[in-house]
Design a protein around this nucleic acid. Structure first.
Lengths: 217, 217
DNA sequence: CTGCATTTTGACCAACTAGTCAAGTTTTTG
DNA sequence: CAAAAACTTGACTAGTTGGTCAAAATGCAG
């Protein structure tokens, strides 16, 4: 499931024209919006086509299957999503590195909420299109960084904590603000939109997690 | 959207027969399974009927609309889901109360993962069926408990922390294990099924959060 | 400006799906 | 045990939706 023959970086790139570039982008942007809101099944090709400002057959000229659009979006998102984790420097100061990581994740959650929801929805439904990616790309990267964190713990630079659960906690907490936005808004009301809300969030999250993993006498 | 005329506790209860009780339960159990896996749009009435072991018209005899099943499930889930929060004792020991709350939430996430995913999916898609519930029931309860936590902070029994963000962090972290189960399994592999995994999870989560909010000298 | 390649779309179709209906079967009740 | 009430279902319908197709419009290289 989820093989994107035409769109993946397979074999011959086939020259892309100017029009192709523009229209693919229009479609992908419209589709991200729709998929992240209504899910894969809940989104119709007509919806995407209308948002993208073109006819359905025209859209299908660029992406012959609905699945293709979806998979392309996930592929585009995943690399970007993982970059901050990869950037954790094993030789840096542990608390500082994790502070940077958490801050970046919260920032991404605010600037790309649709991407976060697209991914959340996919995983929530069993990751049919990306389960392979999870084991072949995500797991190795997490294993690598978990080893770094474990070393930091061994060196007494962090309180004894399971690195995997720490990473999950960071993911869960930061993505929560994008994925459960409606709930956050229902509870915190107008505060959410206000400038400085992200800083306040970052401050609270950092305060709890960083104090929670600081080495203890 | 989402008025469940026949199934809500509205007006006359109308005597329910033995058969009704059995079949409604069969339907709801089958539907929870399906909705939590495939989402509302991704689930067909035929699917639910087959899982429940009855014909589609028969299912529709008990729940005239697909929406009714969905809303009934959400209503059933929400009350149960909120109970642990309501149980936080304002007169208890802060750390102990929060330990109990987190432990209970992790336990629920493991024992009712489908319910957690049903709810996550609903909120992720903008909570069309329960946005009213969020503001009329959830918000007041959270406000109440947030006030308690704020008082604890004021009394120096907890480190200065925003109560709302603390609650969000607890929700996000505990529900993560149900909602992102596939991802957790892809990364932690066989460990997840093993006995004692829940205890290990609880230990890690409690360690970070409780140390993160312990009053600091 | 001409001929070929690319792009665009109206009209259409087959598959699917929520919900209906009338006619049967089973259960309950007096 | 007979009549009424409750339950069950095969066959059907109307609406939706992913995808096709052939023909028209547009862009572009020489």
């Amino acid at each position: 499931m989820g093989r994107a023959a035409k769109t993946s970086a397979g074999a011959v790139p086939e020259k892309t024209t100017r029009i192709q570039e523009i229209n693919r982008r229009l479609i992908l942007d419209a589709a991200l919006d729709a998929f992240s809101t209504y899910g894969f099944r809940g989104t119709t090709i007509d919806q995407i086509a209308e948002k993208a400002g073109m006819s359905k057959p025209n859209l299908l000229y660029y992406f012959p299957r609905k699945q293709n659009i979806y998979v392309t979006l996930l592929e585009e998102t995943l690399a970007e999503w993982l970059a901050p984790l990869a950037d954790i420097d094993p030789d840096g100061d542990p608390i500082e590195q994790l502070r940077k990581y958490i801050t970046l994740k919260i920032s991404m959650s605010e600037s790309h909420p649709a991407a976060s929801r697209l991914f959340a929805n996919e995983v929530l439904h069993g990751a049919p299109a990306i389960s392979e990616f999870l084991t072949t790309h995500l797991k190795p990267l997490v294993d690598e960084k978990a080893a770094v964190i474990r070393r930091w713990v061994g060196e007494g630079k962090l309180a004894p904590v399971d690195p995997y659960h720490l990473i999950f906690m960071i993911w869960a907490t930061t993505q929560h603000y994008a994925d459960f936005d409606v709930q956050v808004r229902a509870i915190m009301g107008s505060q959410v939109g206000r400038p400085g809300f992200r800083e306040q969030t970052a401050q609270a999250v950092l305060s709890i997690i960083l104090n929670g993993i600081k080495p203890r006498g």
